[in-house]
Computed example of a mutant assay.
Amino acid sequence: MTQGKKRVARRQLLQLGAAALATPALMRSAWAQDKFVCKIAHSEAIGSPFTNAFDKWVVMLNERSEGRIEAQHFPASQLGGLAQLLEMSRIGTIQVTAAGPDSEEAIAPEIAATAGAPGFIYKNEAHVDAVLQGDIGQEISQIARDKTGVEFIAYGEVGFRHLLTKDPVTDLDSLQGVKLRVPEVRIWVDFWKTLGANPTPLPYSEQYSALSTGVIDGLDSDYFSVLGFKWHEQARNVLPTYHWFLPKAIRMNAAWLDGLPADLQDLCRSSAREVFAEQRSINRAGADQALEDLKAAGCVVHPFPEDEKAKWEEKSAALFDQFGATSPETAQMIAKIRALG
Rank of each mutant, 00 (worst) to 15 (best):
Y204D: 14
E105V: 08
R90D: 01
C38N: 06
A76Y: 06
W57H: 04
S65G: 01
I187V: 15
E308I: 02
Q279G: 08
D263G: 07
I40C: 06
P24H: 10
N52M: 14
G4I: 12
A285V: 03
R181V: 07
V150A: 03
P240L: 07
A235L: 13
R338I: 13
W312D: 13
S316Y: 09
V189T: 15
M27D: 08
A71Q: 07
I250V: 15
A83Q: 11
A106K: 14
H127C: 03
A41V: 09
A99Q: 14
I216Y: 10
T330H: 07
D102P: 08
N124F: 05
A41G: 06
P201W: 00
S48G: 03
A19V: 15
K336G: 06
K248I: 07
R68D: 04
D307Y: 00
E151S: 15
L202Y: 00
F152Q: 04
A71S: 09
G196F: 05
A71M: 03
W244A: 00
Y242H: 14
L227Y: 00
P305N: 02
V150T: 14
D307F: 01
K35T: 15
W192V: 03
L257S: 01
A235C: 13
I46N: 01
F50P: 04
E110G: 06
G324P: 03
W231F: 15
Q78P: 02
Q279L: 11
K179I: 05
T165S: 09
T93M: 08
E329W: 09
A20V: 15
V238F: 12
Q84D: 12
I187S: 11
L14K: 02
K230H: 11
V226K: 00
R284K: 12
L180C: 02
I69M: 06
D258I: 03
V182L: 04
P118I: 14
S225W: 06
I216A: 11
N62K: 11
S327K: 12
Q322S: 09
Q322R: 03
K147I: 05
L86A: 05
M333I: 02
E308L: 01
V300R: 12
K147V: 01
R11W: 11
R236P: 09
K35I: 15
N283C: 08
M88T: 01
G137E: 09
E87V: 15
S65Q: 02
D55W: 08
S212G: 09
G177P: 13
R338P: 10
M1Q: 07
P261R: 05
M88W: 04
P168W: 05
G149T: 01
T194W: 05
V158H: 06
L246T: 08
S43A: 07
V158M: 06
L319W: 09
I334N: 02
G341K: 04
P240C: 06
